[in-house]
Design a protein around this nucleic acid. Structure first.
Length: 215
DNA sequence: ACATTAATTGTGT
DNA sequence: ACACAATTAATGT
């Protein structure tokens, strides 16, 4: 039924190279599938494994005391969740919620393997560090954008980022969802999108935005 | 094919 | 931010 884990890893996480590592993954890791709309990780969950996302997408959010969601980032195939990684390394409970946006397949690395592999395999170390670094830099960008940019610029950045993440110029979803991600009102998003459409830079239709020429 | 309805999007205040 | 209009997609007949 299911393909060998090592084969999938080679395709989606080519950074992991030691044959011994792949053999151990084959032995200890499991695969997991979840369908859109379900929660992969809930706030407060005890982390027992670290997910390597093969396909599909996840939305990772934090929640404030009033229950408002704050978007941290989207996760796509070939990526892993840096926040969960950090939880794994100090045996903590999850700080975040991860909701499945598109049906996912993930490989689960048991938390018990983490320490061991960090010692034994340099490519695993590199992978972990790289995941951290990339996510950290992305978050710095987000902070910049929240602090210094107006909503129209933030929206453009958001669109660009989403499209490059999923490798497609078409973004699925409603204006309301975008507004939630950006913490603004749906009307503001609709109006700004309309402006961009008038400029010929995007094309709007229901539940769908096509990006034509964002710089 | 048509009518009905619900969800999404557009716009004026 | 709110209220309402217009449009679109989905569904039943």
């Amino acid at each position: 039924m299911s393909e060998a884990i090592a084969t999938i890893i080679k395709q989606k996480f080519p950074i992991l190279i030691e044959p011994e590592l792949l053999a151990e993954m084959e032995k200890y890791c499991t695969t997991r599938k979840l369908q859109a709309g379900t929660n992969f990780i809930e706030i407060g969950d005890k982390i027992i494994a670290m997910p390597l996302l093969i396909s599909g997408s996840l939305k990772v959010v934090r929640e404030d005391t009033e229950g408002n969601e704050l978007l941290l980032y989207y996760l796509n195939g070939g990526e892993t969740c840096a926040t969960t990684l950090s939880c794994c390394l100090n045996n903590a409970k999850s700080e975040v919620r991860a909701t499945v946006m598109e049906d996912i397949t993930a490989i689960l690395v048991p938390i018990a393997c983490m320490d061991d592999w960090l010692k034994k395999y340099s490519s695993w170390r590199n992978f972990v560090m790289l995941s951290y670094r990339m996510r950290f830099e992305e978050m710095l960008q987000t902070i910049d954008s929240v602090a210094f940019k107006k909503m129209d610029e933030r929206l453009e950045e958001y669109l660009k980022q989403r499209s490059s993440e999923i490798n497609s110029s078409t973004i699925q979803g409603t204006h309301q969802e975008i507004a939630d991600d950006l913490h603004t009102s749906r009307e503001v998003v609709s109006r700004l999108l309309k402006q961009l459409e008038k400029l010929g830079r995007i094309k709007l239709s229901r539940n769908k935005i096509e990006i034509l020429s964002l710089v």
